[in-house]
Design a protein around this nucleic acid. Structure first.
Length: 478
RNA sequence: GGCGCCGUGGCCAAGUGGUAAGGCAGAGGACUGCAAAUCCUUUAUCCCCGGUUCGAAUCCGGGCGGCGCCUCCA
């Protein structure tokens, strides 16, 4: 099984192998921590997570680094608006991001460096670019990258570099540049920068690093001159990633990233996400509305990262239902199904094997999570059917195979693990429910259906759903 | 204007040459004291028009419609 990934650089599917196995070096452009990250951001970060888990499943030693942009126009403006220093302003958002990402079951990244911790390295980097004739200081005091000296510029983004797009905006600063496409490496200090403490010394005077530079310096610093995979949202392809290549290869002379992966932007209720539409939901907001992290993750993973995905509340409800079915299967395999050495064969082992094979084939096809998820749900249905046929009994090794397949698939999707972690119930409630269930069992034993239903209705009113099974009555919060 | 993506059942969404995955919702049925859970059955002339082919949702041409990036944005 070979993993194929769509490489934006070649614009085609390519078989992925690490350059230096077993190590895989992956870098993903991270959040700008000027506010709470929204559901669209998390589509991308869950795609990172999926890649992370798939690479790890291949047995590779994955080094996944994601940066935090904590110095740029937005963070500076935010800090100034809040009357605080840059670091005071960004710190909580960085922490909130890590919380959110953990809430959604994203496996920890190996490092999450912040730009402001590496300004010295960035200055050094600019110096090297300058030595190679790739950077120059303009009259406004800022230092720019000289695109005309880097012939390979534009390889990633294609013809977008021809400049005459008719829509390129030119702000006042651009007046000082040699070429409108030249981008800033070092920004000379302005009043606002000084106000929030976003000022560092450099050979070109006080200033702050340009946004593009941090990704080159942080990724190479953490992972080396050549990355196996560089990932980011589709909006970053140009100019951000194009600029990263120029800055990086301009200094190292080596390929910066072998594979470039870009995630498609999320739509919400059929519309583009925007603050004016009020549809930039945060994880926190969705949870306050009663939506579970597992359902959110299910929905965000239900379409392949490169395809359009429309996030709707109807879809989120549907995802919640799908997650419930997964939980029910898990419980059935662990608690309800009985192991009997002399049970008739159920075919569970064969189902497990083909499900995992289909699942992996889906993921190998450019992380096609839709296909992978379909394999999981085919397995769910067929396993339930097999257990129904066998009256809930199976040989121990067959049950074990089914449990193993479910766990194996979920180790990549990470949905069930989230759902199971969520289902913590407080003891008082559990005691209350279980006492009523005992009373109801007595009523049912005496065929007092009115009393039994009365109890169940009381529980339903509190959001408790009962399931009578051969092994007794079980309950869940729904 | 430049580059690119998409149009599949009520909704979401796989499938890129061999006769339509999966999820949600709906309908009928089995099971159940009734439910719940589960299972079974059921819902698609794949935007339109031409072309290539023994054969196309899949390839080519044209059209219509939706969208993204090019500007801070995951």
């Amino acid at each position: 099984m070979a993993l194929s990934l769509y490489n934006s650089l070649s614009r085609r599917l390519e078989v992925f192998e690490p350059e230096h196995p077993p190590v895989v070096r992956v870098y993903g452009c991270g959040p700008t921590i000027y506010g709470r990250a929204h559901i669209g951001n998390f589509r991308t970060f869950i795609a990172y997570d999926l890649l992370h888990r798939v690479l790890a499943r291949k047995g590779w030693d994955v080094r996944f680094v994601v940066n935090f942009t904590d110095v740029d126009d937005k963070t500076i403006e935010g800090a100034a608006g809040a009357d605080s220093s840059l670091s005071e302003y960004t710190e909580p958002f960085g922490n909130a991001f890590l919380d959110d990402v953990q809430t959604l079951g994203v496996v920890s990244f190996h490092a999450t460096p912040r730009a402001t911790d590496y300004v010295g390295d960035m200055v050094e980097w600019i110096r090297k670019l300058e030595e190679r004739g790739l950077a120059y200081q303009a009259e406004d005091g800022s230092v720019y990258f000289r695109i005309s000296s880097f012939p390979a510029y534009g390889r990633l983004s294609g013809s977008r570099v021809d400049g005459e797009t008719g829509r390129s905006r030119i702000d006042a600063d651009d007046y000082d540049k040699d070429d409108v496409r030249d981008f800033v490496l070092w920004k000379a200090s302005r009043e606002l920068d000084r106000k929030v403490g976003a000022v560092w010394d450099s050979p070109w005077g006080p200033g702050r690093p340009g946004w593009h530079l941090e990704c080159s310096v942080l990724s190479i610093g953490a992972l080396g001159n050549t990355l196996d995979i560089h990932m980011g949202g589709e909006d970053l392809l140009f100019p951000h990633h194009e600029n990263e290549i120029a800055q990086s290869e301009g200094v190292t002379g080596e390929t910066f990233a072998r594979f470039w992966l870009h995630t498609k932007h999320l739509r919400v209720e059929g519309q583009k996400m925007s603050k004016s539409l009020g549809n930039t939901y945060t994880v926190e907001q969705l949870m306050e509305m009663g939506h579970s992290p597992a359902a959110i993750r299910h929905l965000l993973i239900s379409a392949q990262y490169r395809k359009e995905l429309n996030f709707t509340f109807e879809g989120l409800e549907g995802s919640a239902r799908a997650v419930e079915r997964l939980v029910a299967l898990h419980r059935r395999l662990h608690e309800e199904a009985e192991a009997h050495d002399d049970a008739d064969p159920t075919g569970l082992e064969a189902l497990a094997e083909s499900a995992v094979a289909d699942f992996d084939a889906g993921l190998d096809d450019d992380l096609n999570s839709s296909e992978a998820m379909a394999a999981l749900f085919v397995f769910l249905k067929e396993t339930n059917a097999a257990l129904d046929r066998s009256k809930g009994m199976a040989r121990p090794e067959e049950l074990e195979a089914a449990r193993g397949a479910l766990a194996s698939m979920d180790s990549v999707l990470g949905i069930l693990e989230l759902a199971l972690a969520e289902s913590s119930v407080d003891d008082d409630l559990a005691a209350w429910v279980e006492d009523l269930i005992r009373q109801r069992a007595e009523a049912r034993a005496g065929r007092d259906w009115d009393r039994a239903d009365e109890i169940r209705d009381a529980l339903t009113a509190r959001g408790i759903v009962l399931e009578d099974t051969a092994q007794g009555t079980r309950w869940k919060q729904g």
